[in-house]
Design a protein around this nucleic acid. Structure first.
Lengths: 125, 125
DNA sequence: CGGCATCCTAGCCGATACTG
DNA sequence: CAGTATCGGCTAGGATGCCG
């Protein structure tokens, strides 16, 4: 993993674009399909692993665990483990993650408006 | 394209989740890595195909054309073609697309703040 | 309960060539 | 200028099973 492939320009371009385009920077952090959803469910407060899984039925264990790890590495969430048996793991938003909250809420808001548009269009059509 | 594959549960889940989770709805529309970037550049006003291409050096023709088509199908942008030779194509935001503007600006805003956080951390480290 | 390792497929995406 | 079509590699992501 120390050496990037030469045939792929995307990963390299992504790195370059990240320093010049703020949207690219954001997409590299929360661009994955599930990242935003996970963060969205964490806005309402810290959650344990199983709660997140129940909140997002469409996600697989692999995706959840993987994206949680990435979000942690990107300093958007923190992980707190109770070393008992069975273990309890709590995920919370970091300050950076908290600041993303309004953005996600704005996205959700837009979604609701936009789907209303569609329903209106359907009624007219 | 009329029949979905049976082996993949994701596309089906996406469809189901889309009706219950607003963030999923948004991600299905602008989740692609380039969609947000294209929309972001269209906020400042209508642009022609070649202008977009120049604005986003990292994107390939295929991705640009493909995502422009999807954005049009999702009613986020409109396409206006001057049927002359050589042709001129202008892409603009629809009202729905315009309403996404503030969200994208908020994302960009967060990105700038967040990258400052990192630089501060590095200085302390 | 929480999460990682393996295997495998679907779809994203780059490169190239062709059309109006 | 503004696309479309085809080929092919890479990787995201689903299914399953094992471990602390």
């Amino acid at each position: 993993m120390t050496k990037a492939k030469a045939s792929s320009t995307l990963s390299q371009n992504k790195g370059i674009a990240e320093t010049t385009c703020p949207i690219t920077y954001v997409m590299n952090k929360i661009g994955g399909h599930w990242k935003c959803i996970i963060l969205y469910y964490l806005i309402s407060g810290p959650k344990r692993y199983s709660e997140l899984k129940r909140s997002i039925p469409a996600i697989t264990e692999k995706m959840l665990a993987e994206h949680l790890k990435q979000l942690k590495e990107d300093n958007l969430i923190t992980k707190k483990v109770e070393q008992i048996m069975p273990p309890i793991t709590i995920y919370s938003l970091t300050p950076s993650g908290e600041e993303l909250g309004p953005v996600l809420m704005a996205m959700a808001d837009w979604a609701i408006k936009d789907s209303e548009h569609f329903q209106n269009l359907r009624m007219q059509g």
